Computed example of a mutant assay.
Amino acid sequence: MSHKLDARTAFFLTMPPLLWAGNAVVGRLVNGLVPPVTLNLLRWLIAALILLPLAPWVLRRGSGLLSNWRRFALLGLLGVGCYNALQYMALKTSTPLNVTLVASSMPLWMLALGTLFFGARVTLAQVLGALLSMAGVLVVLSRGTWAHLLELRLVAGDLYMLAATLAWAWYSWLLSRRAEPERLRADWAAFLLAQVLYGLVWSSAFTAAEWSLTDAHIQWGTPLILALLYVAVGPAVLAYRSWGLGIERAGPALAGFFSNLTPLFAAVLSAAFLGELPHLYHAVAFGLIVAGIVVSSRR
């Protein structure tokens, strides 16, 4: 596996944070229209319908879908069933500011899981890169004034986001280990569809629990339909494809640093929706986050 950071790799790893930033904004906007776990299920149902015509052979006997069921069941649980469901739950019970702060710990969890369970070696450059990158996130969250950080209060939703971050870090490391037939791995639509099919089983079970334990309801309408189309096509299919390519080229540890671009993109998108111009601290944060990526990529 190559661990070189070139322009194409940087593009692959930058697209997911941009799309996920939009996912956080949309998830917050439809908060009162659909339950969070149900939103995750609907999102992946649409994604499966998009992927199925691209790789129908996955459903045939001998494709590797059944013989590798343990691996795809775990990938589906972490990447499809848990990650976004927990994120949507966090957005329902916590503030976007807190959720973004918790998610900014991604590089540290990537390094920790890689060292403990995947035999990765943590370098000084990676540690320094993590510190620089998280400093950039803190600049965004503080809006250039450290007093804003003192106003943060942790709630139950922050624990959901912590669990989501851990799930995504584990999922990313598993992606870096090839344990399925090469034909299945080489076809990106087939590889993602295999994860989604098992993930839908998990998501359906979680959604059934949500509807039986809570007062769940859906308010159908144009806003919800448009939101579902976006989160299925962008943050799901396109982002997961780009993330997988980025991990193949750069490795999970370096890819984790790019996830810290998400709060920066979220701040810019929020500013665009609110009609506010970006501030100087956005540029400072961008410089710190990019510096963290560059430093961590050095051998």
Rank of each mutant, 00 (worst) to 15 (best):
R241Q: 05
L159A: 13
A130R: 05
Y281P: 11
N84G: 06
R121G: 07
S67H: 00
L116F: 15
F191W: 08
A112L: 15
L274Y: 07
L113D: 03
L86T: 04
L175V: 08
A167E: 00
A227F: 09
P35E: 11
T115M: 13
E182D: 14
L41M: 10
W202M: 13
R121A: 10
R61C: 03
G129T: 03
L91K: 02
L108I: 15
G246V: 12
W220T: 03
H279Y: 10
G64W: 01
R298S: 12
L192E: 05
Y240E: 06
I50F: 15
P235S: 01
Y240R: 13
V140R: 06
A24H: 11
A216Y: 09
M161V: 01
W220S: 03
L128T: 10
G234K: 08
R28T: 12
L128Y: 04
T9N: 11
L141D: 02
N68W: 00
R299Y: 03
R28H: 09
L77T: 09
S259F: 10
R71K: 07
F286Y: 02
P16S: 10
Y83D: 08
G129P: 05
S2K: 07
T214A: 15
L52I: 05
A47S: 09
P107C: 08
N40V: 11
I289C: 01
M89Q: 14
A239W: 06
L108G: 09
L213A: 13
L166K: 03
V237G: 06
G251F: 09
A164N: 09
W211D: 10
I247Y: 00
L162G: 14
K4E: 13
Y240F: 14
L174N: 14
Y198Q: 04
A190Y: 05
L193Y: 00
F258D: 04
T38S: 15
S133A: 14
R298A: 14
T93I: 03
L5Q: 03
A250L: 12
S297A: 15
R299V: 14
